[in-house]
């Protein structure tokens, strides 16, 4: 897969440093993501992978470094800027809206596509109704894509874990993102579910041309899916390159892959 032609750089982080109090969570991290690629971030627990995603979509504000997204350079992103400029994500510990149905969760994912004001919404007529129907159709396309028609009206809080992960992917896709951040989309899944999820990720990347940044612990999956991999360890960047390079890197092997846990 690594033979694929990659597009221009869509996102570039330069010398990112993030700390909470005395704890340095990210230290001088720099890498880029190219349009259309599947970019993995790997590393042991506590390496700062999720924090890195949080920096990219503006939930954490790094003290050092810059983020360049689609040509615009910022000190830090703001969550709504990230969202409205086409960054969507899923979460390590599922962060669905538990009291709402699958459909409503996905519709909420489309909230930035909807504009009618409160007065039309109060009447549920005219533009508000039209907009609701158009977005419903878009939501239904995602529901079909993910094959979750049967749970459309079910409250997501009661769905099994694997399905919740799928709904969460649906909610992120609903925003029609250019860059999709997936935080351990396969954690806690059995191999069958993992295969399904891998298939969805490849399809999203192929069919919609969505750029994907992926955090995942299953090395098999990472090496199969990714165009390029960046490796973090204790907030430091260990390696960056195509899967084969990373696999061969001695430091990475020591820190993560090869050395058994004591």
């Amino acid at each position: 897969m690594s033979e694929r032609q990659l597009g221009d750089t869509i996102l570039e982080v330069n010398n990112i440093g993030l700390s909470f109090g005395v704890m340095k969570v990210l230290d001088d991290i720099s890498f880029d993501i190219k349009k259309g690629e599947i970019r993995s971030i790997i590393g042991p627990n506590g390496a700062g992978k999720s924090s890195m995603l949080n920096v990219i979509n503006g939930f954490y504000h790094p003290q050092e470094g810059t983020i360049t997204f689609k040509g615009e350079t910022r000190k830090a992103m703001a969550p709504h800027v990230a969202a409205s400029h086409g960054i969507a994500r899923t979460f390590q510990n599922i962060a669905l809206f538990k009291g709402m149905s699958t459909l409503d969760n996905i519709m909420t994912g489309r909230n930035l596509k909807m504009k009618t004001n409160i007065f039309w919404q109060a009447l549920h007529l005219g533009p508000a109704r039209k907009e609701e129907l158009e977005n419903r159709e878009a939501a239904e396309r995602i529901i079909d894509f993910l094959d979750i028609q049967a749970i459309r009206k079910k409250p997501v809080g009661k769905l099994p874990y694997g399905l919740q992960k799928r709904v969460e992917l649906g909610r992120a896709l609903a925003a029609e993102p250019e860059l999709l951040l997936l935080d351990e989309p396969m954690a806690g899944m059995n191999s069958e579910e993992k295969e399904d999820m891998s298939r969805f990720i490849i399809d999203v990347n192929d069919e919609f041309g969505t750029t994907i940044a992926l955090i995942e612990h299953d090395m098999g999956v990472v090496m199969d899916l990714s165009d390029r991999v960046v490796v973090l360890d204790y907030g430091k960047q260990l390696a960056d390159g195509v899967p084969d390079e990373v696999r061969a890197n001695q430091e990475v092997i020591d820190a993560y892959l090869g050395v058994p846990h004591e």
Partner: peptide, 12 residues
């Protein structure tokens, strides 16, 4: 109501 951080990160 259900998850304010996630809501913020998807653009609410």
């Amino acid at each position: 109501r259900d998850m304010d951080i996630a809501a913020e990160l998807i653009g609410v």
